[in-house]
Design a protein around this nucleic acid. Structure first.
Lengths: 331, 331
DNA sequence: CTGAAAGCGCTTACAG
DNA sequence: CTGAAAGCGCTTACAG
């Protein structure tokens, strides 16, 4: 079954292909009768324009490029959930690009540009400032609208959507301090994510403001390795509270502590900064800053549609609200 | 900065655009000297062919379409991890399409076809046989190679990659029976996933083979709702073992049981069928069938590349091996 | 081995 | 309101 083209439709409706094209793109410019006739034929033939040809002719692919580091990360897939829902609503297709540690950044960017995407959603939060600059320069040269989605990069004024991780962590830390805790540790990752960097900063500021010593502890994010790290860490330190940049880290910390005979929250309290499903399945359940990941995705995609449409956007650096969910791990 | 086209390269290298095209697509057909000259210019100008134009002219988009129901599901994002790694290796771009409960299936398929993908990876495991038939007919009409990725559909002979969920669950159930358990429940979901259907079947068969009564119990997959369901369930039934189609269900079951004063594995044992991170973070840790989700994704993408290349494939229905990981919840 | 030309399936000024 | 024609940036027979 050969695919039906615009010529087939034009033939069957006895109009020129230009008219068929207009019916699809500027229906108001064509007479109601002919329009209805064409629409009927389109329906009968199940015609759907070849997106590639349309893209080439109009120089708009109606496709956004989504650049991720590791798609299997839970936060990333939640972001994608929000992105795809909105993309579908605005009829944008989504192309996925991965840019992992070993990737040649320039090569990936060149490919994204070659794929003719109309806009870019950048979700890779594992780059340092230098690498980010390279990426952003490339995008600006290509003149493609971009939105940073849950990625923090303050060196340039790039449209972005996230929560204020620094403030969120500051607030969380302050709450613990107000509960009378002094030996508050922050469990971060060895790997430096742009968001975690801000979490660390908020934590450190809160500690310093209270005249306390910041105590940052870095672990591999790997759950099975964590337990070993934590073993020694718990035995060798006097701990009153732990803030983990990732919920799974908080949970494995709790598990290790309990195995060693401690009680949470009695001996020390533990909090997370994401509010994933881990927080609810953990025992005790985990108090968290609730990061609205789905919303961050949805809002970035919405922002990108505006930028691609050339709409005026008065505030292109969107900071979403967050709140703290109190659960058993701090009670 | 206007994008550099094949004309720019041809001009700078003082050859025709046909030659430039050949250098990129059939380098062996062009004289080494001219080839080197062209390659040098390509590098200098940072030229990368417009994928859209190339797609239109060659009638190959070098893009695969990935159809998912809900991307934020952990298993789905793990599959995608495997898919993307292999796609990148074979230089295929990936376009993502969502087909949720409310989607107009035909409309989605029409869009996928309109996007001119060279192949389709179908990951939506939430359709019934009738819907699946509709989808598969549409794909066959369009003559696009397809691979079912972790989706079970036996009505037609469609290329697919998965594990034998029926056998895996049969084996797991049998192990529990051999441990002397009789009142073995299967906790499945209200929502009918194609894979879960096979898990239920394997379970029922094992129970019947042992002369035991199958006891299937369906819960919403929702973690917060689960606890309430489980509360009553545990109080009203005599339970010796529980097999959960999803790890998170197993974990919330364990949590509920412990809250009610039971001990796992002393009072009853619990197992999962996925082996996600939940299984390791749970206390007690969860015995599981280990489903190699990343591999399923990677192997399907590899299979699809073969089908797209028109290669002879002797076995297009691939069944990957699995194994059982024994942990605390059954010891 | 290389170039001129047609064509992929659309969109979009330009006439009328 | 409608059609004829050029063009989007490539690929690919066809000559030579």
């Amino acid at each position: 079954m050969a695919k039906t083209t615009i010529y087939d439709v034009a033939g069957a409706a006895k109009v020129s292909l230009a008219t068929v094209s207009r019916v699809m793109n500027n229906p108001e410019k064509v007479n109601k009768e002919t329009r209805d006739k064409v629409l009927r034929v389109i329906k009968e033939l199940g015609y759907k324009p070849n997106a590639i040809a349309r893209g080439l002719a109009s120089r708009k692919s109606t496709t956004v490029g989504i650049i991720v580091s590791d798609i299997s990360r839970a936060a990333v897939s939640q972001l994608l959930g929000g992105i795809l829902d909105i993309a579908k609503k605005y009829e944008y297709a989504a192309k996925l690009f991965t840019m992992d540690e070993n990737a040649d950044i320039k090569e990936v960017m060149r490919q994204v540009v070659a794929e003719q995407v109309d806009g870019i959603l950048f979700l890779n939060d594992e780059l340092d400032n230098e690498q980010m600059e390279m990426v952003m320069n490339h995008i600006q040269d290509a003149q493609i609208p971009v939105v940073l989605c849950n990625v923090i990069y303050d060196e340039k004024d790039i449209p972005s959507v996230a929560i204020d991780y620094e403030k969120a962590t500051y607030d969380m830390t302050k709450e613990l301090i107000e509960k009378g805790k002094k030996k508050i540790y922050l469990a971060s990752t060895v790997h430096r994510y742009s968001t975690n960097y801000h979490k660390v900063r908020g934590y450190e500021r809160a500690m310093q403001d209270a005249g306390l010593e910041p105590l940052v502890f870095r672990t591999s994010g790997d759950v099975s390795v964590n337990t070993l790290h934590f073993d020694e860490f718990i035995k060798n330190n006097e701990i009153e509270a732990v803030i983990a940049v990732r919920d799974s880290i908080a949970v494995s910390f709790i598990n290790t502590a309990i195995r060693l005979g401690y009680k949470v929250p009695d001996n020390f309290i533990v909090v997370g900064l994401q509010n994933t499903k881990y927080a609810i399945l953990s025992r005790p359940t985990l108090t968290c800053v609730d990061t609205p990941v789905y919303d961050i995705g949805a809002v970035s995609m919405r922002l990108l549609t505006k930028l691609m449409a050339g709409e005026e956007v008065n505030d292109s650096r969107i900071v979403l609200p967050y709140h703290i969910v109190e659960r058993e791990s701090t009670k």
